[in-house]
């Protein structure tokens, strides 16, 4: 197949040889492996974008509460702050962060989301892309290209490492989502494929080693806030890359290092709710309250 790639380097080479963007190369690849028309693929991704938009809106404007009662309503609080006050990190940053939290809160409240790449990290990509699209008046067609760019980064990480918190910790899960979002944001702003991969690499480097330690094992806390920080990380890393700053370690090596770090993590810190925040006195008390004494 002409447009197959196994890592970041091969993806960049394909882009440069064919004078294409990452999203174009990824779309060619998808059409080749599935036998589907490009229009059909774009149409399906467009539906994913609509579900993401709905989840953002719901979390920002409606009262959502998770099944356990642990999370919900924080996105709305942050929206009220950035709409009515001068914020430290600015309107756009706060809006993106609140949007990411909104999606995770909707997820925890058993609402509809698109895993991106997982349910636990599903807020970051919509948070970044929908906010960037609104700020820079990008059409849905353009925003969908961002989702496709993001999927290329996620595919490479899935193929060469992991995006599962249970396998590689939160660095792998929200780290992958943030790297995907950073690369997409760079490409949407006119950055080169190289810059997009630098942004993705910088994003993962920034949170390397982050553990997965959900309270009571639920996709709620600290997941909502880890999606918040993943969103900020993606936007900052995208700006760093767009300024022409490079990641000293290339993307593929960063992904490999991230994977190795994940494998070194004890199982207590990989989604088992046996370590980190889950094992704090408060974390354990919450767990007892939700599930009783049995666990």
């Amino acid at each position: 197949m002409d447009f197959e790639f196994n890592n970041g380097r091969e993806c960049i080479d394909l882009c440069n040889q064919n004078n294409k963007k990452i999203w174009e190369v990824m779309l060619e690849r998808e059409a080749a492996i599935t036998g589907k028309e490009k229009n059909e693929i774009i149409h399906y991704m467009m539906d994913n974008l609509q579900i993401m938009k709905n989840a953002v809106r719901k979390g920002l404007y409606e009262d959502v509460k998770s099944v356990s009662g642990l999370v919900g309503g924080d996105a709305k609080k942050l929206r009220e702050r950035y709409e009515n006050h001068k914020t430290l990190s600015g309107y756009r940053m706060n809006k993106a962060v609140a949007s990411a939290m909104a999606v995770l809160e909707v997820n925890a409240a058993m609402g509809q989301i698109v895993a991106a790449p997982t349910a636990g990290s599903s807020g970051i990509l919509p948070g970044v892309l929908i906010t960037v699209a609104e700020s820079f008046e990008l059409s849905d067609e353009e925003t969908v290209r961002g989702l496709i760019t993001a999927s290329a980064i996620g595919y490479i990480i899935t193929r060469n490492a992991t995006v599962a918190g249970a396998e590689g910790g939160c660095q792998a899960e929200t780290g992958a989502a943030a790297a995907m979002a950073a690369a997409a944001a760079v490409e949407l702003m006119g950055g080169s494929p190289e810059q997009a991969f630098h942004a993705a690499a910088i994003t993962i480097k920034n949170i390397m080693g982050l553990v997965c330690d959900p309270i009571a094992g639920l996709v709620e806390a600290p997941c909502v806030k880890r999606n918040a920080i993943g969103t900020a990380n993606a936007l900052i890393s995208a700006d760093i890359a767009l300024a022409g700053i490079e990641s000293i370690i290339p993307f593929d090596e960063v992904v490999e290092a991230m994977y190795r770090v994940g494998r070194m993590m004890p199982c207590e810190l990989r989604e088992t709710a046996l370590g980190g925040l889950a094992a704090t006195p408060t974390g354990l008390e919450i767990q007892k309250r939700i599930f009783g004494e049995q666990k």
């Binding site: 099944v67 997820n107 058993m110 698109v114 991106a116 996620g154």
Partner: peptide, 10 residues
């Protein structure tokens, strides 16, 4: 990677 569409949380 971007999917499935699902009802949360897990």
């Amino acid at each position: 990677v971007i999917g499935p569409r699902m009802i949360g949380p897990s």
